[in-house]
Amino acid sequence: MAGINLTNSVPSTFILTGIPGLEAEHLCISIPFAIFYFIGMLGNFTLLFVVGKEQTLHKPMYLLLCMLALTDIGTTTSIMPKALCIFWFNLKDITVGGCLTQMFFLYMSSIMQSAILVIMAFDRYVAICSPLRYTTILTNGRIAKLVLLGFLRAVLFSLPMPLLLSRLPFCANRIIPTTFCEHVAVAKMSCGDITDNKTYGLVTIFLVTGSDLMLIALSYGLIIRAILRISSKKAHQKAINTCTAHISVMLMYYTPGLFSNLTHRFGQGIAPYIHIILSNLYLLLPPMLNPIIYGVKSKELRDKVGKYTCRS
């Protein structure tokens, strides 16, 4: 990414302002942001450690949780260290290459996370609708292939964003009024036509998120149909319980994500600092809550975590 040359007279660095209008409150704002970030990192690294150490957890469900944890770590780490440097040390400069690299990894992690949620929905569908064939349908090898396919899709959809920006004239404007290099925010600095950038951003949202939501809706439609056919109330409740964690994580990811992206593009009447705070919280809260939700809902995982954390 650092080797991409921007056209015209673009300076070697951009300036990330943080949260415009709330500069005096940066230190106070940084406290919850830092807490959310460190709790999220602790939870996700704990999940990775426990699943890695426990052979009994080397199953598709827990391997997918590890992949979700990796995307959570990638998403928050791509933005929070720089944001905290802005809040704590007023280090606002970021190189052009660093900005484009941050953007690429941010979007790649986010798109990859959406793919993992789709695979997890398929995992729940097989577990409920074809439980006797679960181990033959969802082998670790098949999960690895699905994850690799999701990774390739994430790279292919993320790479055009910095490439499109590399074609824009920036006319020496280098102030980005946010805490991280968001695609449209950087594009708006240009003095050229950014129609292609806006169009590609919207196409990516609706094509990637839209197709993923359709696949998830299809999976849960089939799951609901299977649950309604279950006569035993106990089995009915058990089937619902197997899906609640995934549904919670899914709602936390897609609902604020769509709201944040759409209001950033169309919510002209909303104060800029609201957009920025919402964008940061959207990227911080799910990674913090995901391991907690699965730790609470999965007794097997909870017991294994307790085995290591409660050692004397």
Score class of each variant (00 low, 15 high):
207 L>F: 14
183 H>Y: 15
202 L>E: 05
195 T>S: 10
192 G>D: 15
198 K>P: 00
183 H>I: 02
202 L>Y: 04
210 G>T: 04
200 Y>T: 00
192 G>R: 12
210 G>M: 04
183 H>G: 00
211 S>G: 04
188 K>H: 10
206 F>N: 07
183 H>K: 03
207 L>Q: 04
210 G>W: 13
198 K>A: 12
189 M>T: 03
184 V>Y: 11
199 T>M: 14
200 Y>I: 05
200 Y>A: 04
196 D>G: 03
207 L>K: 00
200 Y>L: 10
210 G>H: 06
202 L>S: 08
192 G>F: 07
209 T>S: 12
194 I>W: 10
188 K>G: 01
192 G>L: 05
188 K>Y: 11
186 V>F: 05
192 G>M: 14
182 E>H: 05
183 H>S: 07
204 T>G: 12
195 T>D: 13
201 G>Y: 09
193 D>G: 03
204 T>D: 15
199 T>Y: 12
191 C>A: 15
210 G>S: 04
182 E>L: 07
196 D>Y: 07
196 D>H: 03
189 M>H: 06
182 E>Q: 10
189 M>P: 02
211 S>T: 14
201 G>E: 02
210 G>C: 09
199 T>A: 11
191 C>M: 15
182 E>M: 05
206 F>S: 03
204 T>Q: 13
197 N>I: 04
196 D>W: 09
207 L>I: 01
194 I>T: 12
198 K>N: 13
211 S>N: 05
210 G>A: 12
201 G>T: 03
189 M>Q: 13
190 S>P: 07
210 G>N: 09
182 E>D: 02
186 V>I: 15
200 Y>M: 04
204 T>W: 11
188 K>S: 09
191 C>Q: 15
188 K>V: 04
210 G>K: 05
206 F>A: 11
